[in-house]
Nucleic acid binder design. Sequence first.
DNA 1: GATGAATGAGCTTTCATTCAT
DNA 2: CATGAATGAAAGCTCATTCAT
Lengths: 199, 199, 199, 199
Amino acid sequence: MTSTRPLRADAVRNRRLLLAAAADEFAERGLDASVADIARRAGVGKGTVFRHFATKNDLIAAIVLDRIDALNAVGAELLEATDPGAALLEFLTVAAHQRQQRDLSFLHESGELPTEVTRAREEMSQTVHGLVDRARKHGAVRADVTGADIILLMCAPNYVASYVPDASPDLWRRYLAIIFDGLRPEGAHPLPHPAPPTP
Amino acid sequence: MTSTRPLRADAVRNRRLLLAAAADEFAERGLDASVADIARRAGVGKGTVFRHFATKNDLIAAIVLDRIDALNAVGAELLEATDPGAALLEFLTVAAHQRQQRDLSFLHESGELPTEVTRAREEMSQTVHGLVDRARKHGAVRADVTGADIILLMCAPNYVASYVPDASPDLWRRYLAIIFDGLRPEGAHPLPHPAPPTP
Amino acid sequence: MTSTRPLRADAVRNRRLLLAAAADEFAERGLDASVADIARRAGVGKGTVFRHFATKNDLIAAIVLDRIDALNAVGAELLEATDPGAALLEFLTVAAHQRQQRDLSFLHESGELPTEVTRAREEMSQTVHGLVDRARKHGAVRADVTGADIILLMCAPNYVASYVPDASPDLWRRYLAIIFDGLRPEGAHPLPHPAPPTP
Amino acid sequence: MTSTRPLRADAVRNRRLLLAAAADEFAERGLDASVADIARRAGVGKGTVFRHFATKNDLIAAIVLDRIDALNAVGAELLEATDPGAALLEFLTVAAHQRQQRDLSFLHESGELPTEVTRAREEMSQTVHGLVDRARKHGAVRADVTGADIILLMCAPNYVASYVPDASPDLWRRYLAIIFDGLRPEGAHPLPHPAPPTP
DNA sequence: GATGAATGAGCTTTCATTCAT
DNA sequence: CATGAATGAAAGCTCATTCAT
């Protein structure tokens, strides 16, 4: 029962190939990447895509889910780190490092959001709120920023760096540093607009 | 011949209607807005769109060009303002206020970039470098940020705010303030990556 | 204003070609006839089909509508004929003659039924009830059959004949005669089931 | 070799499950019912369907064959009944009662007709001719109808009744009665078209 | 100069059929 | 033998683009 059936070996491999190929293809072509191209890139038939993901949307959701869950795992660990400020910065660094920013926009623009993704997002919301609360209490971030702010700002460094045509793949680090400096208490000016509600 | 022919009057009017309708439609539907819908919104035939803009891409480029040129005009004025720091902030505020960020991403994602847009971008680059240089000399921004950084960061506030589903239309002001705080000399930490080259 | 604009001349021609080609194709291949084949048969591009009929279903509905309306016109004339029994038989003969039976099944099996078709069907229902009432009063048909019965039986002769592979195109006349004999008062046996309600 | 191997037991069971599931599925969804759904309904894998029936068409043919053979068995018994007229009516009643009409149309519309079905059809043709001959000699049916006519008319009552959306499941009895009255000698009018040849 | 009908490549999705497990 | 994963040929439909009117 618990043994991994040999039957599924190929299927599991294909699922991975498909997710990887789709992530690459979406990254290059945007949300309009065609399922046919994804299938070709994964080296499988078009029909195989739909065996694994009933809908193009489901495929997108699966990618997003993977990414969010991976981040959540990192966040959970960092909640126990000794230096709360460094932990928050590390979280944002890891987040940017997986180039999550683009993928998150997929779901945002894509039609429906399956419940699993919503669940994962709420989990991330919890985690980030925890990281921010600890950092704030420690004096590592200014008093007027919230977890919701951080989640929103999380994707900004990659987005900003993506505008440079042949940029160094680490350019986002520069903008993460600048934005993180804006989150510090030193030299903080009052914010002109209240924080958005926690989703 | 060189006089404005009466025929031209209609054409000019149609061009404006088309640009406005296209901007609205793109804002609502994203880059996938159909030419047919744009034509309908402008109250003209589909063929008229292609008389004015040989390609959907050209239409996008024209919108982007308009936006950049409008910003350039504002920037030119602000280069003569008395308070360089306030001038830079005002420029970023105006830029965000026209919700330019979305439209710029059109060109970025869209295939070709016509020479005129390149020209306008270079002009903006010059302007922003001037604004940043003055602000830096005045001690209003940290020493290690460049005009290229500002151009890249310019779209970030709207992008960040766009992730909130039913956000207040002014939410971007919050994130512009945070990012701008990150640009100030107070509490600036060394940046881990060099600035990108000026385009 | 009321003049027929030259612009639409081609469109009208294409619409007719399309309806004819679709009717032929459906008659040969059944409801599963592909839109591509219909377009090819009509000598137009695939997209043209969808310009004229937004949906395959709409195309089917248009064909059905044409057929029903043509029948209604005939029925309206026959309501004024001198011999009510002959009028009813003539109506059924005309109905079978256009091989309407198959096309009616299209709508029946096809998903949605647009309001116009419903309207035409109700009109036909009225007409047939009138024809039957007159024939009954005249003693040409048995007392226990209704208009609803006739509408249902209308398609039967063609259906029956369609089972013969290479039948004479007039074979349906034989079965219409048999069925009509079953509608006569002479030798009628009591019916074991009440008539269905008028739609 | 000739002994029934234990392996065969499962196969036979599956074949029956498959035929039943397919009949149900076709009845509900029409000829377009998918092989996957049939397999699921039968509780077997999709591959098993193709082990038993090389083609979807073969599966359809097998169902049709079963139905025809069942009818043939009934017909053979009725050939020995005392009242030839009642026997023919009973045969038609039984035929309609198994709702054979729909299934026969499957084969008619479906591409190829395997030899076995042809054989069963010929057998039925013989049987029906026998029933009709006896009824004719007995004066129960008019002189000008043949066995071929009866075979063709056999499906008509169900077909006619199927047009009523939420009809009573016995509505076909009404139309069988009307059609049978048309087959009686009383009040028969000459037929305008010769009978089709016996297949 | 403006129109919108025509076009056909391309999209997502379904499904009968094959074949490795 | 049974399974269901893989396949690829359609299917219905959309849309940027062309061109007769």
